[in-house]
Design a protein around this nucleic acid. Structure first.
Lengths: 341, 341
DNA sequence: CTGTTAGCGCTTTCAT
DNA sequence: ATGAAAGCGCTAACAG
């Protein structure tokens, strides 16, 4: 139950090379039928599992793609990551590729120089939220293996991106609130480095601008996409003597924090203040009130990214190079947290 | 940006052994300060990522645990696996261990003999739903690395298990339905190999037995824990001329299938038929009607399993051997899918 | 069809 | 404190 290839060879009375050939589907044809039988019998009897490290040390491809996620407590209670994971996993099920989750602590210094191919033995990469790990967009272009980047699209970089239409999402939120009669609005933003956060805000402001409105800079408050940060920092906006009538949270986590604070402060939502989130986390269906939010088709988008990556890996010379970007439409989902002003 | 240890050594004018020592935290102390400086400068300049395969080939430990899940489409839309994953991931965040998901296609022949330590380079294993992969409980005892098994507890095997109290869950479901006045009940079961399915049923039947009732074997129908199978197979029970007034589904997926069929057949739930699920999938909050179910603390249970595994890995000689089992209490959650008969 | 052999990149004695 | 050298288990090139 724990032979290596050398011991197998001795028992079978052949060389290690022959064992190796017999074991690998591609080379089995080069082995005589009766030798094959001997080896197979031996394997059935004692069991034999090739040492992955040895195999990968010798070969360059591992038929594995790495999936880069940020590592923090509770990550798998975030629908964002679960949806992306589901899309990747489901797509890969139909291929002969595997994936390996790479949960990275956020530390630019460390990752800018890291060689994922050598260090993690992956053939390709799917990267989410790259600004959390890399100090500059140029790092993306240096990556030495095919990669697709999910979210935080940069049109000025020649990697391949897939993501939702953030500007449109921001615009839809503005349109929705404006249509309900809101004129005084606040925004809770993500980390300054997040492209998605910036784009959502841009779409929002742009629409308001068209209507002759502009956001009070005091009411654009950063909460790092975190529920607790939102809970704490939204307070100052709410205690403003002439507080806003609506708050656009650039992700759902922050919207949940806002809802919680509103409830603590006994400010009625949506009667007194409307709240819009972003991402369509399933928790938004359960919150009180149910959250109006912007749905991004993450599952589909992750599948598409994976498909492109795998196809590229299989035939790098294929027609479509791994450049450019695919933008998926997003959709505002109206629920109970927004109402007429 | 792509040196290996040999090239590093040449550039630094030292031997590969010295580079190796300088790179690894444990051995850095054995290197002269100025040599260290030279090496560090070189790394900062060119970058250096050790080849994982080479490292692991040489060393026996990889500080990685494997997490065995069944591989099927949609697995990450199952709260069961997501919760377990979340528990493991969150616990590991505080340690220097990593995890590697091993998504196994269900094929006993293949896995019974597989050596996960060699084949996947893991130091330990967390295994869910073992009966799907292994043909016999004895395989569990043969595993050559420390393992903890989640769900499908077998007291007659000397591995370490963590799981919910299935018998109690079944009993609670029976008690609840009986208390509501139900006397004619059907059960949708999981795969015959699933210990959890058998135990839930046992608890259910045992309680009914105490009340002098017994289940009609015709009304114990297998649906493999699958939503669609439940949707299809529950029909024959519903079309029985004297159909049951309540259905206990041994997991939530099957309960969702049942609810769907009920709706299609225009049978009112809970007015005409009550439905109880098992697992407390978040979807149960959104279903119409919201699902009465049994909550199993999977997140906590996965954390506990991981904790025990890691502790054991760190000091195998520690007081508690990796044997026995920890059973977590489960709790029936009453929602809207059950009512008085 | 099969065997011999080199070598993937690293860690770890054993010397010095 | 450092270097030389062996070897982890495997694959692939080459020779036969």
């Amino acid at each position: 139950m724990k032979l290596n290839i050398k011991e197998m060879a001795k028992k079978a009375g052949v060389s290690v090379a022959t064992i190796s050939r017999a074991i690998n589907a591609q080379t089995r044809g080069k082995v005589a039928p009766d030798t094959l039988e001997k080896v197979d019998a031996l394997i059935k009897k004692h069991g034999y599992t090739p040492n992955l490290s040895a195999k990968h040390l010798r070969q360059s491809s591992t038929r594995t793609i790495g999936v880069i996620f940020p590592y923090f407590r509770g990550i798998f209670h975030h629908s964002y990551y679960v949806e992306v994971l589901a899309g990747i996993s489901d797509y890969l099920l139909g291929t002969d590729y595997q994936f390996k989750m790479l949960l990275l602590k956020e530390d630019k210094e460390q990752w800018d120089q890291y060689d994922f191919k050598r260090g993690e033995r992956v053939d390709g990469l799917i990267i989410t939220h790259w600004p959390r790990f890399f100090s500059h967009k140029s790092v993306l272009e240096q990556i030495n293996i095919p990669s697709v980047i999910i979210s935080d699209l940069r049109k000025d970089v020649k990697n391949f991106f897939v993501g939702g239409d953030q500007v449109s999402g921001g615009r839809q939120a503005a349109e929705h609130l404006y249509g309900l009669g809101h004129r005084r609005m606040a925004v809770l933003t993500g980390p300054a480095i997040s492209m998605d956060s910036r784009l959502r805000l841009r779409g929002f402001e742009h629409y308001l601008g068209m209507k002759g409105l502009s956001l009070d800079p005091q009411w654009i408050v950063g909460a790092d996409f975190l529920e607790d940060a939102a809970y704490n920092r939204v307070e100052k906006v709410l205690k403003d003597r002439k507080r806003p009538t609506a708050i656009f949270c650039l992700n759902d986590q922050m919207a949940f924090g806002t809802l919680r604070k509103l409830s603590d402060l006994k400010i009625a939502c949506p009667e007194e203040i409307s709240v819009v989130g972003y991402d369509d986390d399933p928790r938004g269906l359960l919150s009180v009130p149910a959250l109006t939010t912007v749905r991004v088709p993450l599952y589909e988008l992750a599948q598409e990214g994976t498909r492109r990556l795998i196809n590229h890996l299989k035939s790098p010379s294929a027609e479509k190079p791994l450049h450019g970007h695919v933008v998926f439409p997003v959709q505002l989902v109206q629920r109970k947290s927004t109402a007429c002003q």
